[in-house]
Design a protein around this nucleic acid. Structure first.
Lengths: 150, 150
DNA sequence: GTTGGTGCAAATGATTTGCAAAAGG
DNA sequence: CCTTTTGCAAATCATTTGCACCAAC
């Protein structure tokens, strides 16, 4: 597929040296249909290239993040999740009950972003948002919002 | 003021033992006009009670968070920020340029929350949100959103 | 050849935990 | 008293860094 040749172009454009490690990190990110942690990328790359070090993964991710090719998001798991930047941003609804992750269309946050820009002159970075809460399935079982709780 | 007696009531209601350490953590949180890190709370408490340990601060914060009396938010500083839960939630706009923190009225996110509930049956936990971006002052100097960047 | 990138190993730093002593109810 | 909480010290665990070697360009 065109991903690998494309990744080469991506690195060239970014004036980064073209190393197999970086190509594999890029490949992992671009083939993932979602977010990956540094450890997950590490596993994937190591499967084909056993000598990579986790620090190389982090260094590559930092570089890619700096040039805004990947997003870094705290999904609440203790480590950070990385995702290749798509043309149309999308976001995640994370259920605190079942830990399921739902995708959220950018439209919802676009509205919020417009409000913030218009009213407060604040240009919000809404490329990749994680919103926690409760999905329909987990709502009745868990404490409803209005309850005083324990 | 009523904060201390009120804190006593808070702990009683929560069926937590009433220790000076906990009262001081509560006091720090309730008097702060914003968010505090665990380390900041630690400093404040230690000033009056030199033998407290940071682990006690964390344990107290965990307990308070479990009973939804404080919020825990990643403000992007590497550590987590804690804030006493107010009657009316408010949120933070964090400028990536000058690191200034602006308060955001709950109305903006209420709208989003309503949308998510109506359209997706997802009850978002919007008690305390941190939105990163660029304030008006930092915008012209930094890369505008529409630019292709590096 | 230079410069930047990598592997390795060790450091960092926030947060957590085991355990015995101390304090709350 | 009995249980929970605390202080201390040590452990975790993701992420970062110093450094010598190696590979792109």
């Amino acid at each position: 597929m065109s991903c690998d040749t494309d990744s080469v172009a991506v690195l060239r454009r970014a004036e980064m040296k073209l190393t197999p490690q970086r190509l594999m990190v890029l490949s992992a990110l671009r083939h993932a249909q979602g977010h990956l942690t540094a450890a997950e990328i590490f596993e994937q790359v190591r499967a084909a290239y056993p000598y990579v070090d986790i620090s190389t993964i982090y260094r590559t991710l930092t570089a890619l993040r700096t040039m805004r090719l990947v997003t870094e998001t705290d999904m609440g798991s203790g480590d950070l999740a990385y995702e290749w930047v798509q043309e149309r941003p999308h976001h995640h609804l994370i259920c605190s009950g079942c830990h399921r992750v739902l995708e959220l269309d950018h439209g919802y946050l676009e509205r919020l972003g417009d409000d913030l820009a218009r009213d407060l002159d604040f240009e919000a970075d809404l490329h990749h948002f994680a919103i926690f809460g409760r999905c329909a399935a987990c709502r009745p079982a868990a404490a409803p919002a209005a309850s005083p709780g324990l």
